[in-house]
Design a protein around this nucleic acid. Structure first.
Lengths: 152, 152
DNA sequence: CCAATGTATATGAGAGTTCAAGTAAAATGC
DNA sequence: GCATTTTACTTGAACTCTCATATACATTGG
């Protein structure tokens, strides 16, 4: 409990509401595009990207959860559904009997490859195309700062 | 269909991943705080704020949906649950028989008042406290730009 | 070696979101 | 003035996410 609240002043309030509006509109646009054109939510896309970049397209569940900034539970459910689609398969880890690898299948890689162009195009349309180079640098800087602060 | 994809270069890729990481971490922190201390998700908080600022603490459902950047369906479900908690009540609109008002109850206002300090504190901790004034101005500018682009 | 504790992941239930219909009242057109 | 279309909102089902709990293996301490 804090003695008194440091309320947002008018400028901060405006900034905060612009931030919430912009980010929500952006994610809504991304999810709509991915769902419409590739039948997957953004979180699944991120998981597939993570696996596609990993050595041998495989990663331990917990590692992948960290990478995708997902809870272990969410990842487990998500991988279960990706497995049903044949895009990912699980393999028991030989060194650690508790562990599992998530492995990207060829079908999964193909699905990602098919989804990527439309997704990237949407990211450009919604973000990079509307900002000038200076703004993009500033955004990178801001996000890196916030990220490093919240990551621990 | 586009002839060829304008892929993200390394800088853009980094910026984009920082953006996704930062925003997701931020919303995760907000939701955790609100859920833990006030038993509501951020979307409900936004709805309550909207109503609290409206004349007579009431708004038409569609107006409120637009304000909160929610689909009509999502809002309808959310208001139904807020109604169960006694925080909001619905009233039929006299001028338009199809319409409904969502009205913030005194209990709802009290719940919002109780939730606000902790929420604002979290917004500060996670965002404003980690950025310098220049970055905050830049962020406002960027978000306003993205917002106006995506709002139509 | 074995009990106790810790770690990696899975699972089930509940809550929230989306999508596709559904209902009911208003506006439109002839 | 009545059929048609549009608008405002609701509903149900399917899906995703969260939280608490369970499971199974690994590690540690005596």
């Amino acid at each position: 409990m804090h003695p008194m609240t440091r309320w947002l002043d008018d400028d901060e309030q405006r900034t905060w509401r612009n931030f919430v509006a912009a980010t929500q509109l952006l994610y809504a646009a991304l999810d709509r595009q991915l769902q419409r054109d590739s039948a997957m939510p953004h979180t699944y896309y991120v998981i597939l990207v993570g696996l596609s970049e990993a050595p041998e397209r495989r990663m331990r569940m917990s590692e992948l959860a960290t990478w995708a900034q997902s809870s272990q539970s969410r990842l487990s459910h998500a991988v279960a559904r990706l497995e049903e689609r044949g895009w990912v398969r699980r393999e028991r880890c030989p060194e650690d009997g508790r562990g599992n690898f998530a492995v990207l299948t060829d079908e999964g890689f193909a699905a990602l490859a098919a989804a990527a162009p439309g997704h990237v195009e949407e990211v450009r349309r919604s973000l990079f195309d509307v900002l000038d180079p200076e703004q993009i640098r500033a955004l990178d800087d801001i996000c890196a700062t916030v990220r490093s602060r919240l990551e621990r």
